[in-house]
Structures are given as C-alpha cells and as structure tokens.
C-alpha cells in the first residue's frame, strides 16, 4: 500500500494546504495584530490578564464537559441498544434524521415545550406539580445542547460496537464471565475508539456554542463563542477573536496529546 500512498495524498494534501494551513496561518496572523494592523502580542496579553476571558474559558470548559458527559451517558446505552435491534441500520438513521431540521427551529420548538405554559409544565400539572421556570436555567441549556449533539455521539459509538466480533463476546461468556465483566473487559475497550471520535466531535465545538446560550440560556450561560462572535462581528476586532481561536486550537492539541499518552500507557 505504500506506493498507493502518494496518490491518495494529492487531494487530501491540497485540502490541507488550502483549507487548513492557509486559514490557520491567517488566523495566527490576525491574532498577532492589533486593531491598527501593527504586529503585537497585546491580544494574548489581554486574553491572559483579563478575568473576563479566563472566567469565560472556565465556564466554557465546564459546560462543554457537562454536555459531552451527558451525551456519552445517554448516547452510549442508546448506541448499545440499537446494535441489538433487528433493523438496526434503519433505527440508526432515524437517530440522525432530527439533525436535518434547522437548529434555530428546534430551539424555537424547545422554547414552546419548556415554556412556563409549555408542554412539559402542562404535563407536570396533570400530577399537581406547579409550573416552574425551565427556560434560562443551566439545566435547559445543557439539555438542549446535549439534545443537539447526541446523534454525533451515537453514530461513532454505534459503528465501533457493530464491528466487535460477536465470537469474542461468546468466548467471554464461555469462559464464565458475567455480563458486567464482558462489558468492562471486552465491549467497552473495543468501542473506545468510537467513544473518542464522539468526544472529539462534541467537546471542542461545545466550547464555542453561542446561539443556544442566548436562545435557551437567556445569556445566563456565556461561553467563549459569545466573545468570538462579538469580536468578529460587532467590534470588528478580528485580532482578539482570532486570539481566542488560537487558544482553542492549542487546547485541542493538548487534549489530543493527553489522550495519546494514555493510550501508550495502557
């Protein structure tokens, strides 16, 4: 396969050059410029010395972590159950389908469902539970974000689960392992690659959510995305916006490095 390698490399390398390295170079370039276009490090200084940005980074991390955990917690069992269904491919596609409807519309639907006179409160009312504020709470923000991201977690996990050779599982039972042991010793480790893909597809994009923080969170939850949007659009300070982008990229590289080490250790 080595000889074929260079052939495959061409389209992908072109893509890398034009759509990854060129834009990233632009972003790094912008992050080194102040609003007058002079070369400077002040953006980074501002970022690391401002309590605002550090707070934003912290809260972004916290919420991204929560969202990723929730999707994993609900997504993994779902992916697992799906693999045991008869028409499993069909069901999987039905999981993906909701993502084809506009995010904005789904958020509007949640506004209706979670509202003080909305579906959830009316349902609770049937049991005599008084209507409560659901919108603009941390719960509703995490819930809706996790809802939006859930299919992106289920899909890779499902794929890795499907590939597990069922003879391995039978072998494990034959050797006297119970269900829990089989799960922890065989299924979980073998599906780990899917879990990792899912986390990568969710965690870091969740750091820069901004639409939902406003729509569902009522700006009680603020993430780095809010600041980036503001710098790129409202204040037109692309330098600062790009700086936050660069910080995000560095964080990603660190996270990737860490997961690799762990892999080597075990």
């Amino acid at each position: 396969m080595q000889k074929m390698r260079s052939l495959f490399a061409v389209p992908y390398a072109l893509w890398l050059m034009f759509f990854v390295f060129a834009p990233i170079a632009l972003i790094v370039g912008y992050s080194l410029m102040d609003i007058n276009g002079h070369l400077t490090l002040t953006n980074y200084q501002d970022f690391f010395s401002s309590s605002n940005y550090l707070l934003l980074t912290l809260s972004s991390f916290w919420y991204a972590l929560l969202i990723t955990l929730c999707t994993l917690l609900f997504g993994y069992p779902m992916a697992y159950c799906l693999t045991h269904l008869k028409h499993r491919d069909l069901w999987l596609m039905l999981v993906i389908l909701p993502t084809w409807i506009s995010l904005l519309l789904k958020a509007y639907a949640f506004i209706g469902i979670f509202g003080i006179h909305g579906g959830v409160n009316q349902f609770l009312g049937l049991f005599g539970i008084p209507a409560r504020q659901i919108l603009f709470t941390n719960f509703s923000f995490v819930f809706v974000s996790a809802y939006i991201e859930l299919p992106f977690m289920i899909l890779p996990i499902y794929n890795s689960l499907v590939e597990i050779d069922s003879s391995l599982i039978f072998a494990s039972y034959d050797l006297g392992a119970n269900k829990w042991q089989t799960f922890t010793k065989i299924i979980w480790p073998l599906s780990l690659s899917g879990v990792k893909s899912g986390i990568q597809a969710i965690f870091i994009p969740s750091l820069s959510l901004f639409m939902l923080t406003r729509l569902i969170g009522g700006n009680h939850v603020i993430t780095l995305g809010t600041a980036i949007e503001e710098h790129f659009l409202v204040t037109q300070n692309w330098g600062m916006g790009a700086t936050i982008g660069v910080v995000l990229i560095i964080i990603m590289l660190l996270v990737m490095g860490l997961t690799r080490q762990r892999k080597g250790g075990s």
Binding site: I111, G115, L215, N219
Partner: peptide, 16 residues
C-alpha cells in the same frame, strides 16, 4: 430574567 434577541417576541406572546 433573560437577555435575548429575536426570540423575545415568542417569550412575550407566550407570557413566559
């Protein structure tokens, strides 16, 4: 209660 944008229309009409 919230800082929102175009959605305020829905919130007020809903009496949220």
């Amino acid at each position: 209660k919230a800082i929102a944008a175009d959605e305020i229309k829905m919130y007020l009409a809903d009496e949220e």
